[in-house]
């Protein structure tokens, strides 16, 4: 087993795609984390599955952008249903998330058995969206990822201070006259886009890991939102590249779990050893009232 593939243009392409996906996930995951919506990402990524399969069934096309539009629409619908269920019934967010996540995924799996009966199903390779398969990325796919990522970064840059105040103090943002609802919709849409990109490399089952883990890791290293977003993007990109590299190197592995493991490893290391907040430092001073982190 050599390292020749590092020079391979295909590998470089795939690594670039994965890095971008990881970076987008880390940046939007930061907002999801701070708004306590980490698990909404999980529900949305699972909810994307029926959209992918339906897009294939309705059009018969295996065009990636088209499948991802289907994924985005159904992820959005999932998020909307979570909000509807929690606002209009006694069901609390945890159960509403679990409901949407498992039912949408179930519908997706049921539709997948329909899709598999189509003669073109094998080439469509819909199964790769379950656990991700970065290796099948094409040049035009990576180009699409790069365009979407650029759009997402631009919008976050433009609405930076609005998103910041929305995440910190929505009541104040509303009192200030900011259109909180519109901003919320925009941020959710960007998160849905990040998830749609993530599906290719990480898959519906584990995309949420790319949102949560890099952001949680970055939070341990800095107390500034600006730095946290950049760091989370960087750590996400690192997980993407590392995961793709490892899964290519080891072979016979879907990339999703490997990327998720890399991101989780980085998060674990940060939780333990980040300066000041690292848990390893608090263990050494038992009973000490040193507050590295806040309560609540």
């Amino acid at each position: 087993m050599g390292f020749g593939f590092l020079m391979d243009p295909t590998f470089r392409l795939v690594a670039t795609g994965s890095a971008l996906i990881g970076a987008v996930g880390g940046v939007l995951g930061t907002f999801a984390l701070l708004r306590r919506q980490s698990l909404l990402g999980d529900a949305m990524s699972h909810a994307a599955l029926p959209g992918i399969v339906l897009a294939f069934l309705l059009t018969g096309s295996r065009d990636l952008p088209l499948l991802l539009v289907g994924a985005s629409l159904s992820a959005w619908l999932g998020a909307l249903l979570v909000v509807l269920i929690t606002h209009r019934s006694r069901i609390r967010p945890d159960a509403a998330l679990g409901l949407v996540l498992s039912v949408f995924f179930g519908i997706g799996m049921a539709l997948l058995t329909v899709a598999q009966r189509r003669p073109t199903a094998a080439q469509a390779g819909l199964e790769r969206f379950l656990f991700g398969q970065a290796a099948v990325m094409l040049p035009q796919d990576v180009e699409g990822i790069a365009r979407t990522a650029a759009l997402i970064f631009l919008l976050i840059f433009l609405f930076w201070k609005e998103f910041k105040v929305l995440a910190f103090d929505p009541a104040f943002a509303a009192a200030m006259g900011l259109p909180v609802m519109a901003l919320d919709i925009l941020l959710t849409t960007l998160t849905v886009l990040a998830i749609a990109l993530g599906l290719q490399a990480v898959g519906v089952v584990l995309t949420s890991a790319v949102l949560v883990a890099p952001a949680a890791a970055a939070r341990q290293w800095t107390n500034r939102l600006e730095r946290m977003v950049i760091l989370a993007g960087g750590l996400g990109a690192l997980s993407g590249v590392l995961g793709t590299l490892l899964s290519t190197w080891i072979g016979r592995l879907p990339t999703g779990p490997v990327i998720a493991l890399c991101a989780s490893g980085i998060a674990l290391f940060s939780l333990l050893f980040a300066p000041r907040r690292g848990l390893a430092w608090t263990v050494k001073s038992p009973g000490g009232k040193r507050r590295a982190g806040p309560s609540g």
Binding site: L33, R36, Q37, S38, L39, G41, D42, V205, L206, S208, A209, L211, V212, A213, A215, A216, R219, Q220, G256, P257, V258, A260, L261, S264, A267, L268, L271, R277, L279, G293, P294, S295, G296
Partner: peptide, 20 residues
Amino acid sequence: TGRVKEDAALGLVFPALFSL
């Protein structure tokens, strides 16, 4: 530990174990 909120704690632990 207060380092992450409950939702993130869940979101960190189970994908890791599941991936393993």
